[in-house]
Amino acid sequence: MRIAISAEDRDLEARVGDRFGLSQYLLIVDSETMAFEAVPNPGASDQRGTGIQTVVLVISKNVNTVLTGYISQTAKRHLSTNGIEVLTGLYGTVAEVLEKYKKGDLQKHMGVVRKPESRGVKIDKVALVHALRSSANQFANLLPILVSVVLLIGIFNAFVSKELIYSIFSGNTALDSIWGACLGSILAGNPINSYIIGGELLEYGVSLFAITSLIIAWVTVGLVQLPAEIVALGRSFALVRNAVSFILSIAIAIITVVVLNLIKG
């Protein structure tokens, strides 16, 4: 079993860190061999103390349990969601706390009951309720925009003539694909909306080339998110990735529809 302990120094005699997100080190200990690795806590310099970097680090280290002084509810929730047990309110040296943990004193004190490791596919109630809640949240987040798009499609159907559509999407494969990719690059949001818009445009007789490039560019190219992508991943990465994705959305659209037509004869 692998245990992550927040620590003020890089050995087992170090004191347990008061705060999970801000302590200087994380000691990743194998509870059976007591072999350990001291990892500088990437969140130590993050004065906001959000702990995101520490959470990511712990998850990536295949840790089973986190022992610490204090942890934010948000970080605890994310660790628990990933099946990582979290015990807080601990103090003393890392070695002392580990010893207590191995004896089961900490778990008894905190009323923690270790679940037997399940083998095979077994759904427990808590996981099901959590999954239901997450799905309901995701669905609820998706619905307002989806309903609005469908209502807007109604207005579109009532007011926009086929002639107007044909003046934009003329039936020229290359041009239609470019227009579709442009539209997909500007519009953003859940891709389900692109499928619905594409499906309705198809009924208007707009070519599948245009619709396909719209659907691909909707997710892979993001003019709206471009500033955020530049900040996170760098200017050249964001610009090159979006430019190449734009071009490829057109190419993929053309290849997809050509292959589809070949298969359908």
Binding site: G199, V244, S245, L248, L260
Partner: peptide, 27 residues
């Protein structure tokens, strides 16, 4: 699938994955 049919979705999925490799290579 409801809008475009499963054959289209299958082809598009395959080419989208291949396309992503193209983007990765270019980047």
């Amino acid at each position: 699938i409801a809008y475009f049919g499963w054959i289209y979705v299958l082809i598009l999925t395959v080419f989208t994955i291949l396309g992503s490799l193209g983007v990765g290579y270019s980047v």
